[in-house]
Amino acid sequence: EGGHDKGKTFKKFESYKRAELIPTKAQDLKVMVDVRNSSIILPIYGFAVPFHINTLKNVSKNEEGEFTYLRFNFISPGQIAGRKDDTPFEDPDATFVRSMTFRSSDTYHFAELFKDITELKKQAAKREAEKKELSD
């Protein structure tokens, strides 16, 4: 499958049209989920940085000493499991964020996030599958 129509293979998604639409809760400088906008918001050096759920491949959680770690794996080239039609792999020069790992001493907070993000991802995948089915 070669995708002769490059413009169509990549469906545009956008977390927020404007920065002021980012929930004020982001001021806590914590990882958060915005279900309504299908996005996760990551605190990176003072910025609240959204990532659309479509860019997320999966999230993993592990505990080590007093910290809980969440690792966000994003869809990027060179992964067989990637959903190729949703990301612009046509651009050979693009740099991709492949993963980010955060830590917190709040086990509960990260356990909830893990649950919520996994659920959001599941719902997004389901919607995508339904859409595909309809268009066939």
Partner: peptide
């Protein structure tokens, strides 16, 4: 005092050097 979550690692896919 609320401590924020901390970024500890980041990985980037950088195409650059490898030619196809």
């Amino acid at each position: 005092k609320i401590r924020g979550d901390q970024l500890v690692e980041m990985r980037l896919h950088v195409p650059g050097t490898v030619d196809k």
